[in-house]
Amino acid sequence: MSHLDPDRLSLIALGEPATDEERAHLDTCDECALELAELEYTVIVGRSTVGVGDLEAPPERVWAGIAEELGLGAADRMSTAGGIPAADERERAATADEPERASAAASVSDDEESPGAPAPARRKRRTRIVFALAASIALIVAAVGTWTLVRETQPVEIAVATLDAFPAHPDASGTAVIVEKPDGARQVQVDLEAAEPSDGFREVWLITEDASALVSLGTLEGSTGVFPVPDDIDLREYVLVDVSQEPADGDPTHSGDSIVRGELGFA
């Protein structure tokens, strides 16, 4: 029994309609029907990555694993810059592998065109290639998915400020880093280098650029503190981070004695 041309099976798997004769053959030929099913599976796996969106390039170890899985040499590995071989890498690979590829091409040509090579043997080789490609695509999707998931569960730094000393506290310095958590909540971490106060306490503030409004984030205990940023605070307006020295007098307003202050720079 003659079988359908492998190229036609590939086109049908990609969505090209089969003719009545081809459909009738697939209904009666288990071998061609199985090969078509394997090709359709590969197409489904490949197309399943389209909706993933913009993805981070996986680490080099992912491409190394794929190259090892497929038995590729170092020159055949894809660059991590978008998963596409760099131009110079492609040129070196083409030059280095030309004799080997020529030999391989001749071997494949002999196998496929030789009358002595039975059709089942050729189809088994094609099946192995199909499954290798499907496994490689699945490996890429799994690696990128894991990479994206890990990245999405980490807080993202959105702004940083260098806190400069006021004249009354010349030796003080500090930094403030604002991060946004996966749930959208924002936090500011303040690190302060300054002498411990003999009395009173130190308080962290967010202040508008023109100092017309301010909000207290809390008391700084020690040299480092993490404070939640209220949801209704627009950090594009409250761009100044301030640490003040406050007396223990029960007055919730700013004492006017700032230790350090700095403006947020956004990522």
Results as ranks from 00 to 15, higher is better:
I233D: 10
D183N: 15
V226P: 08
A134D: 09
P120E: 08
A121Y: 00
I44C: 12
P118F: 13
E16Q: 15
A81D: 12
A135M: 00
A75C: 12
L163A: 12
S223H: 13
S103M: 15
G83L: 05
V241G: 06
A119Y: 11
D242C: 14
E16W: 13
V144L: 09
Q245R: 15
L240W: 03
G250Y: 03
A121G: 05
S244H: 04
R122Y: 07
L149I: 07
G184I: 00
L55S: 09
P230G: 02
S212I: 04
A86E: 11
K124F: 02
V188C: 01
G116E: 12
D5F: 02
E203H: 04
G53S: 01
I178Q: 05
V141F: 06
A13R: 00
R125W: 07
E38N: 06
C29T: 01
P115H: 09
S212P: 01
S258N: 14
E100W: 01
Q189N: 09
L11I: 12
T42W: 03
Q154C: 06
R261P: 02
E56A: 06
V156C: 06
L36F: 12
A74K: 02
A176Q: 04
L139H: 05
V204C: 03
P58T: 01
S2I: 04
A105M: 02
T162G: 14
D257V: 07
A96N: 08
R126N: 09
G83H: 04
V141G: 08
A248S: 11
E98S: 05
I84A: 07
A67R: 02
E193N: 11
C32R: 10
G145W: 03
R126T: 05
A142F: 11
E152H: 14
L26K: 08
K124A: 04
P247W: 03
E196D: 13
L235F: 01
A93K: 03
V50T: 04
T95M: 12
A165E: 10
R101H: 12
R90Q: 06
I259S: 13
F201L: 15
E21I: 14
